Every structure is written in structure tokens, then in C-alpha cells.
Amino acid sequence: MSHDPLHPPLSEFALTTEETDAIKHALALHDSWKLEQVGMEPVRDTLKALRNRIKYFHLMRQKNLCCYCRSNLYGGGLFTIDREHIVPKSHCKPLTYEISNLSVACKRCNMEIKKNKTSLFHNPATIKDTHQDKDSYKIIHPNFEVYEDFISRTQLQEGTSVLVKFNKRKEDAKTEFTYEFFKLRELECNSFDAAQGLPQSTSTQTAIESSLVSIAQGDSIPLDTFISLIRQAATSESDDDQKNSSGINTLPKDEMNKFITAALELYAKSVNEQYTPIGHDRTLSLPAPRAQESDE
């Protein structure tokens, strides 16, 4: 078994005798997960409680984030969070209730992308025996590896303006496969400029994004330099909408203050605390998923 670097450790999750017996009953059925089937009636309440316990245990381990894309799951329920089977239960039924084969994911990553695919294993035929070995997987393993050792998600939201950026911390096969498999590029966005009616790819966009990404990667930026960079980025020599007396195009004062306030919040966090990915306490609203629970 690979080292477990997360907290609380997997070893702290213990099954009761009643839960163990209920799992044995479920595994004897054709579908070991669907609670609504008639055959589940004797153990339905026990398994329902167990599955909730599994979900909240893994939410603690993942810090309320999707184990694959780091979207915020805090406060989400049936329509947001899936109990994720890393090795799909359809591929390996005996691992259906194995705590090391479970985690939490958003509907996008689980239902729309991963589904029942086995291409994320090096050898699907032997994964039952090697499922606790992180090297058996092409993806970052949700339980045996720290996601942020490979990829960090930088996220800033001010009202309706959102910046999302994934930063590859390692240049290796797992980083690349996870990034491509879960289509993380599709989640990246920068609507700060668009929200202000500014053209894309301006100095504002470039400076703000590069500053936030640098801080997210743990780089040290002097406070004066940081503020100066943001202020300078708000001044552009582009066209003719809001030019001041010197003929320079600037952001409105109240919008500039929004940028500076949000940026300084992030700066203070990086200076006063050990760096934690922004996704841990910043929210990005995702489109409402389909009202269907997959839990693959």
C-alpha cells in the first residue's frame, strides 16, 4: 500500500460489524450500490448512513474540493457532489466500499468525463490487486498523492469577475495526463477584463494574472512592487473610451479599488499564512449539474 499523505488518515475510518455485514449483503447483489432495489431493503438504512459517513470523511481529506479539478464542493449536496469510485465499481465490484478506492468529485469530472473509463490505469486487468499502489495510475491518485504537489489551482472571484488558472508544478506524465484527461484547460478563465468592458489580452489582464499566479506558486513579491504592478496595469494606451486629462486610458476608480482590494487579500494570505491553494476558500459557481447521482 502506498503512503497515505492526507488527513484524516484512511486508517482512522473503521467499519462497524453492522456495516461490514451490510457490505457483504450488497456485494452479493447484481448491483452492489443502488439502494432503491428491492434486495437492498434489509441493509438500506445502514448503507445509506455509511455512504454519508464515507462522503464527509473524504470531504475532510480533500478539504471540500473535487479530487480531480479542485472545484469547491463546500455546501454542495446531491446535485453537486459524487462519492467517487476511483476504480469504477462496474470494473471491480469488490472495491465498491473500499475506503482507499473512494473519494469525492464534482459531477463534471465524475459523470461527464471519467464515467467508467479504465484508461487512467496502466493495467486495468491487474488493478484489483494493485489498486493501493499509486504507480498503477496515470492520474494523480486522490488518496495516495497530494494534488498540489503536481498541480495547483489559482482562483480569484470578485463579484461576477473570475480568474481560474491551473499551474503545473511538476513536468511529469501524471501532471500532463491529469491535466488533459480532466480537461482542466476548459475550466481556466479570466473575466476580470471582460467584466469592465476592456479588450482581452490587455496589460491589465497580463499583469494581474501573472501576479496572482506568481503568488500562488509561492514566489515572493514585495508589497510595494505588487501594488505598483497592479496600478500600472490599470493604465493603458489603448483607444478612446475613458481617457483622463493626460490622454491615458484608465480604469474607473471604484473598479480599480476592487482589483486592489481583491489582490491585497490574496497577498496578505500568502504572506501571513503557509500557502494554501486558493480553491480551498474561494468559490466558483459551476453550472447546475443534471439531477442524477452516479457515484462511479
Rank of each mutant, 00 (worst) to 15 (best):
V43S: 00
P277L: 10
R185C: 06
G279Y: 06
N190M: 08
S270Y: 10
L6N: 00
T235H: 13
I215H: 01
D219M: 14
T276R: 14
D21V: 10
L286E: 12
K89I: 06
G279S: 15
E145V: 05
D193G: 15
L284I: 15
K24E: 09
N143Y: 06
P289T: 07
V271R: 15
P88R: 05
C66K: 00
L29E: 03
R153D: 02
N110Y: 02
A268Y: 14
T206G: 11
V87S: 04
N110E: 01
S119H: 06
F166G: 00
V213P: 02
H85D: 02
T178G: 00
K243G: 09
L286G: 05
M256E: 14
D241P: 08
A263E: 03
C109M: 01
G39D: 00
T283N: 12
S191F: 04
L65S: 03
T46D: 01
T154H: 13
D31P: 03
Y179K: 06
M256R: 13
E273W: 12
E209H: 08
G75H: 07
S220V: 14
F182C: 04
M60Y: 10
I140F: 09
D82Q: 15
Q62L: 03
N52H: 12
N110S: 01
D129L: 09
G75I: 09
S32G: 07
L15Y: 09
